[in-house]
């Protein structure tokens, strides 16, 4: 084996390639982290409490979604159930990406699982399925997770202290939406994927009235079913 081949397939090479692939996507985290930091401060958390939540929970959607309940002194079970509902998509992501961790030890898997976010999932999924070398896969995935963690903590901290300084009219939070679009567009170039996205997005709008944001989970399931059905239909047509 050529040294260059070996290097290309090792942990360090995985880290390098993962970082290059993930860097543009990670930009979208910054406004999102700032917004969450500001929201926790306006909920009345001290900086220590806010950073405590940020490190222990480490989930922007669940943090933002449960804040109003915490402020309202809602019962503990309702806060936790709401958090769980907001995180249900991770169960789907976790099951989907799990085969990508073949040949990687249990300790690493806990760490990788803890660091699983929408961005890491979207950027790593294909590579983790295609590449054989477990060390390359671990490097590629871990750098996206660790970089997300660092950016998230740093810019949430910035948001905690910047609360009230950045004018709302800058609409910085919209950069998070653009980041999701940047992830979505290349996926939707395959016809069944486009069907999954259209049905998922359309159902989420129609089902927005469901409690605890369960509409989103239902819409994801409908989108998956529609994409899968479209794939079968496409295969039949070309067969």
């Amino acid at each position: 084996m050529q040294p260059s081949d070996f290097e290309r397939h090792g942990f360090a090479a995985g880290v390098r390639e993962g970082f290059v692939a993930f860097l543009p996507v990670s930009v979208g985290l910054i406004p999102w982290a700032l917004v969450v930091g500001m929201a926790m401060t306006s909920a009345g958390f001290t900086p220590l409490q806010a950073m405590g939540m940020n490190i222990i929970v480490f989930a922007g959607t669940a943090q933002l979604g449960t804040l109003p309940l915490i402020v309202d002194n809602a019962p503990l079970w309702l806060i936790v159930t709401t958090g769980l509902a907001l995180n249900l998509r991770f169960l789907i992501f976790s099951a989907g990406i799990a085969p990508g961790f073949r040949g990687i030890g249990t300790g690493w898997r806990w760490l990788c699982g803890h660091l699983l976010t929408d961005g890491s999932f979207a950027v790593c999924y294909d590579k983790l399925m295609q590449v054989d070398n477990p060390r390359w896969r671990l490097g590629f995935y871990l750098v996206t997770g660790v970089w997300t963690w660092l950016l998230w903590q740093a810019f949430t901290l910035a948001g905690i202290f910047a609360a009230g300084i950045v004018p709302k009219s800058w609409s910085l939070e919209f950069m998070a939406t653009i980041a999701l679009i940047v992830l979505l567009v290349p996926m939707a170039k395959a016809r069944p994927m486009l069907v999954a996205a259209l049905v998922g997005g359309g159902s989420a709008v129609l089902l927005r009235g469901m409690p605890l944001r369960l509409g989103i989970v239902t819409a994801i399931c409908l989108g998956i079913a529609a994409g899968f059905a479209a794939e079968h239909w496409q295969e039949k047509k070309t067969a």
């Binding site: 929408d118 979207a122 992830l183 994801i220 989108g223 529609a226």
Partner: peptide, 28 residues
């Protein structure tokens, strides 16, 4: 992972999870 794996059909279906989930967050 190793001790429990999903049926291949379900795994194929789950490939559509990210596109469906991203759209379900962005579109509304």
């Amino acid at each position: 992972g190793n001790r429990f794996s999903l049926p291949p059909t379900l795994q194929r279906a789950l490939r559509y999870a990210p596109a469906a989930a991203l759209a379900a967050i962005v579109v509304p």
